[in-house]
């Protein structure tokens, strides 16, 4: 199956950068300690915040530090670069679904980064702190599902944003605007439940929360029962919406390229 080959290729591309991976793990781990310290100091002063006690907060910190690269929140501009250089034309001529091909590659990348850059910091956090692990078996399954969905939601968003390169010359500015919300709206900066209720409700339904906060709240069992179902449903919704929007925009862009001659 050609897509499976692409998944493996995605993995292999990223495993080549071994020294950079080690450097990245060191940095992730350091930031984990810093963020954990701040959250712990806050909760030790004021008691549980947003339903998070110290164990929750620390687990949240190490989960986010482990998840950063896997979810791929930040800079992915490969598609945009290919669009602006014109290399995208070779992608069009291949007998593969373009979005599917890139998704396959992204899954390979995510898998590698989960193992190489996600697990090590989390292990360090586990050794240094008392983390909260799920009590129920089904939580683990739901969390795994949530992680996969989170990667695909993130991919859908990145793919869509990259397509902007068909229309906007200075892609860097466009990307900066999109990453504007990333850190805060995804729940990476602080847990979304720390926000006032009205803000939290709004942020929950935006796509960014599906990339980080929802799977984390599943793991911490902050989302159980109906809330759990709701969270996963939101993720599924955004997968469909973003991938669908991506395909629609791609169709428009393709027509434009074909008409204008690239």
């Amino acid at each position: 199956m050609p897509y499976l080959v692409l998944v493996r290729a995605g993995w292999r591309r990223w495993s080549a950068y071994r020294a950079a991976t080690v450097a990245g793990v060191i940095t992730n781990t350091a930031f984990g300690f810093i963020r954990a310290a701040v959250l712990m100091a806050a909760i030790n002063t004021a008691g549980p915040i947003g339903g998070y006690d110290t164990a929750d907060a620390v687990t949240y910190t190490w989960l986010t530090q482990g998840m950063i690269m896997t979810i791929g929140i930040w800079r992915w501009t490969e598609l945009a670069v290919r669009i602006q250089s014109g290399d995208i034309v070779t992608d069009f001529s291949r007998p593969l679904d373009l979005q599917g091909a890139y998704l396959a590659g992204d899954l390979g990348r995510a898998a590698y980064q989960l193992l190489a850059r996600g697990v090590p910091p989390f292990l360090v956090g586990m050794l240094a702190f008392d983390l909260r692990f799920p009590e129920h078996t089904y939580t683990w399954i739901a969390f795994a599902a949530g992680m996969v969905l989170a990667v695909v939601v993130s991919f859908g968003m990145r793919f869509l944003v990259n397509l902007g390169a068909f229309w906007v010359l200075d892609f860097r500015g466009l990307y900066a605007v999109s990453s504007l919300f990333l850190t805060v709206a995804s729940g990476f900066a602080i847990p979304l439940s720390f926000f006032p209720a009205w803000a939290e409700s709004l942020l929950e339904v935006l796509p960014w929360a599906s990339m980080v906060q929802i799977p984390i709240d599943v793991f911490l069992e902050q989302r159980t029962g109906a809330a759990l179902a709701r969270g996963l449903a939101l993720q599924v919704f955004w997968v469909a919406a973003l991938l669908g929007a991506g395909r629609a925009v791609l169709r428009v862009a393709t027509r434009r390229v074909v008409v204008q001659g690239g």
Binding site: L180, F194, P196
Partner: peptide, 26 residues
């Protein structure tokens, strides 16, 4: 564009601190 974006982004950065302080006096 870069300038305005970075200005707003960094305000969000401090906004996070403000949000945290809604729950604590110090």
């Amino acid at each position: 564009l870069d300038f305005s974006v970075s200005f707003v982004v960094t305000f969000l950065d401090f906004a996070v601190v403000v949000v945290l302080f809604q729950h604590l006096p110090a």
